[in-house]
Amino acid sequence: MAVSLGPNASSAGRRRADLLFQAVALVVLAVALGALAVLVGTVWRDGANRLDWQFLTSFPSRRAESAGIYHAIVGSLYVIALTAAMALPVGVAAATYLEEYGGRSRLARFIELNIANLAAVPSIIYGLLGLGLFVRTMAMGRSVLAGAATLALLALPVVILSTREALRTVPSSIREGSYALGATKWQTIWHQVLPMAVPGILTGLILALSRAIGETAPLITIGALTYIPFAPDSIWSAFTVLPIQIFNWVSRPQAAFKDNAAAGILVLLALLLTMNAIAIVLRDRYQRKGRP
């Protein structure tokens, strides 16, 4: 039989099926990405009008048009800063142990498996843990501290996993160079390995924090308040955060409060964008140091 490279009936049919399949896949992707656009568009349509200086600087109110979100912004920033302060050192230390010391020991593998599973535990379960452990057993009450501790536990797996990735990218030649100069293991880690991993660690931290700042359920569970007429002024203050305030407004029947919720969502999304921008700037600046 001679080789024929021209189209025949069956190959044309298969080609059509292939193209059709590709078209369907593209449409599906377009719909998913389109949904994101519609989501942002809807929120913008509903909330842009409410978004003004008064809204950003006012406390909540029974009347939708004079209610603001100042307390929730301060609350969110307060909680997230404290979360970072707790999750970063513990997470980096844990990752350093697993990556640099733990090796392939059975215990290290067990800890790894445990972290992977923790990363997939629903956030509301962390809320129940925070309620039982921090709010009650450790008697922190429904405070900023209890909220941040809960979110820190939630953020920990992400910080650990991304720090390990970052440590793995540090070339072994750097470790050897340091050891060859008579550095101890910890000196090598502290002076050479961790500084080189900083961009990756920071990126992971911000990723974890931007997830934490959008968390609602665990903070509701530990009893963060939904109505609070003041901003937190210490780690023992009662508090609320942006997503809880948004949830509170969404749950009201009046349409005017729904618009407040949309405006609150815009603030939250802006905060998330800012955090990611900070991550990119930090990473760039750090990478430029020590490079040509």
């Binding site: 750097i174 060859a180 050479q192 080189m196």
Partner: peptide, 8 residues
């Protein structure tokens, strides 16, 4: 070392 490995 074989490949120069200055610290960054």
């Amino acid at each position: 070392f074989q490949k120069s490995n200055p610290f960054p």
